[in-house]
Amino acid sequence: MDGSRREFLKLAGLTAIGATGASSVRASGGASSATGGHAEASSDGVRLAMVVDLRKFSRDGSLAERCIEACHRAHNVPDFGDDPKNEVKWIWTEDFETAFHSQEFHFIREDLKGKPTLLLCNHCDNPPCTRVCPTQATWKRDADGIVMMDWHRCIGCRYCVVACPYGSRSFNWKNPRLGLEDIDINFPTRMRGVVEKCTFCEERLARGQQPACVEVCSNDEIVFGDLNDPGSKVRQLLAERMAIRRKSGLGTQPEVYYVIDDPRTLQEFAPAAVVDGAEGGDHA
C-alpha cells in the first residue's frame, strides 16, 4: 500500500505540472501521439492508464455500481432515470460480450459470461475523437495522455461522439441540472448542448487524489498509474497477467486494460472459493 501511495503522489505531481501547461514533460513526451505508439515511444513522459481486473470484480457483485455512483456523484453527471434518449454517463457497465463485441467471445468461462464490465473513456493514445473536433474543444494532454474536454469551447457538433469507437461520449440533449438532485460544488456542472465524458479525474489527480472510481476499489480491482514507469503497478499487472483492450485492432491505442485471467490464479483465492455459481472447472 505504501509503495503505491508513493508512486501515486509522484504521478499526481507530474500531472499537476502538466495541468499548468509549459513543462519539460510536455516537451519531451510530445512525440508519442503522432506515431500512435505509447509506452516505448515516450518513455520519459507520463502515460496514464487504467487496468480493470475482471478477476477481482467477480468477488464483489456491487463494486461496479459503487464505482459508477462515485464517479457520477463526484462529477455531477445527471441521472434522467429510465430515459435512454437523454442519457449522460461517464462510466457504466455492459456485459462482457457486449463490451468486447467485436472479439466475438463464444463458450467462455462462466465467470466472464454476461459479467457486468465497466466501460469508460479509454483515453486513447491515438484518439479519433480529438482528431475530428473542429475547435480543439477536446484534445490530448501531452503531459500525461489524458483526453481532455473544454466545456466552454465545445460547439456541440457531436462529431467527436460520432468518431469515438467505444460510445464513451455523451451529449447534453437538455439542461443537465434537471437530472441532478444534489450538486457537488467542487466540480462544475455542464450546460445544455455540450459533450462530456470521463476525464480520468484530472481535477482529483491535481489535488493528489486517486480517480474516484479507483478510490472505491479497496483491493486493486482497478489500478491506475503511469505506463511509462516500468515499476508501476499497471506495468506489473500487464506484464504478469492476460489483459485485453477494446477494439485494439482499430489502432486507437486505448489505455484502459481488462485483466481476464482465470480468477483461480489469484493467490488469495482458495480453489473452492471461486466466483459464486461457477461450480468448479466448467470453463471452456
Binding site: T135, Q136, R153, C154, I155, G156, C157, Y159, N172, G193
Partner: peptide
C-alpha cells in the same frame, strides 16, 4: 440548427483546426 451551442459558432474560426474534416467542409 443541429449545433448544441450555436452561440459559439465562431469558435470554428477562432480555433481553426486543419486536422478536422469539419473545418475543411466549412
Amino acid at each position: 440548427v443541429d449545433m448544441g451551442r450555436p452561440d459559439r459558432i465562431l469558435n470554428v474560426f477562432l480555433h481553426p483546426t486543419p486536422h478536422s474534416m469539419m473545418f475543411w467542409d466549412t
